[in-house]
């Protein structure tokens, strides 16, 4: 995995960071193209890089071989030894100069067209099905890490290091595995929130679809539905009946309503999967429509 690279990447701005490392917007000085550099510092011993890091990088590289149109390209991996105990692993990803948040802000006051929303949702779900079929759970899907190229192509980003669950799965007890935060339904819920977000007009930057907002769509779940092993009590929330969804997202068609409700189903085991969402009638209508106009 230690790969020497002759290509030179020059950081131009810091664009993210956290406990795992720092993210830079950088430029490939040869092609002029921007890239995203993600650096992670890992502890090393006489055996070299920890096996977990090697596996995570190997999985990302395997994903890359599929060249999926709806996830960002992994262009390069570099390992630099900093000292006997520390190595810096740098992942070079494709950088897209627009995210869904920016794209939605630019939408005309009348909102995005129905065709546009359908097309973007289809691409988003395609990317998600690809990740899920490779046992990668994103867990942090949001408009900021859904990228939109100037040609309108959706690319999922930030499904990176230390989020790959399949590798550490074996040692986890079933009750942890069964908890929704470790399984693919979390991503479908996020996608449902983003779906609703696309329909909302006159959006303001501060309105994020929060859990209480979603409750106003699905209504407060019953005592039976409320998970028993969580610290947050059902009594914390005001009992509200579900609002008609067309009141929250007035422009949506009936197939869209159906799909949205299936994605925002409270019980993760009842929630629609990404692959089934992609097969939903909502997307089939589009195909018939384009066929008839041909």
């Amino acid at each position: 995995m230690a790969q020497t690279s002759s290509i030179h990447y020059e950081p131009v701005a810091e664009i993210g960071g956290g406990a795992y490392g720092t993210v830079y917007k950088a430029r490939n000085t040869e092609s002029g193209q921007f890239v995203a550099l993600k650096s992670v510092r890992v502890q090393t011993d006489q055996n070299g890089l920890p096996i977990s890091t090697v596996r995570e990088v190997a999985l990302l590289r395997r994903l890359e071989q599929f060249d999926h149109p709806n996830v960002v390209r992994l262009m390069d991996v570099c390992a630099t030894q900093r000292s006997d105990q520390e190595t810096k692993v740098t992942l070079v990803f494709e950088h897209v100069d627009q995210d869904l948040k920016t794209y939605l802000e630019k939408a005309p006051p009348a909102g995005l067209s129905q065709e546009c929303i359908k097309d973007m949702m289809k691409q988003l779900l395609c990317g998600l099905v690809f990740l899920h079929s490779n046992c990668v759970i994103h867990r942090d899907l949001k408009p900021e890490n859904i990228l939109v190229t100037s040609q309108g192509q959706i690319k999922l980003a930030d499904f990176g290091l230390a989020r790959i669950y399949s590798l550490t799965l074996w040692y986890r007890p079933p009750e942890v595995l069964l908890q929704s935060s470790y399984a693919s339904p979390v991503d479908v819920w996020s996608t449902g929130c983003i779906f609703a977000e696309m329909f909302r007009r006159n959006r303001c930057t501060n309105c994020v679809p929060s859990f209480p907002t979603c409750l106003s769509v699905i209504g407060l779940p019953s005592e039976e539905e409320w998970p028993s092993n969580v610290t947050l009590s059902r009594k914390t929330f005001r009992p509200v009946p579900p609002r008609p969804i067309t009141e929250v997202v007035p422009e949506i068609d009936s197939q869209g309503v159906q799909l949205l409700l299936k994605m925002l189903t409270f019980d993760p085991f009842e929630r629609i999967s990404a692959v089934n969402a992609l097969e939903h009638q909502y997307f089939k209508d589009e195909e018939t429509a384009t066929e008839t106009t041909k």
């Binding site: 100069d97 802000e105 630019k106």
Partner: peptide, 16 residues
């Protein structure tokens, strides 16, 4: 600290 201005490194798709 990388010797660039904000306009040089901005998210190019962000009109605002």
């Amino acid at each position: 600290r990388f010797g660039r201005t904000a306009l040089q490194v901005m998210m190019m798709g962000s009109l605002s």
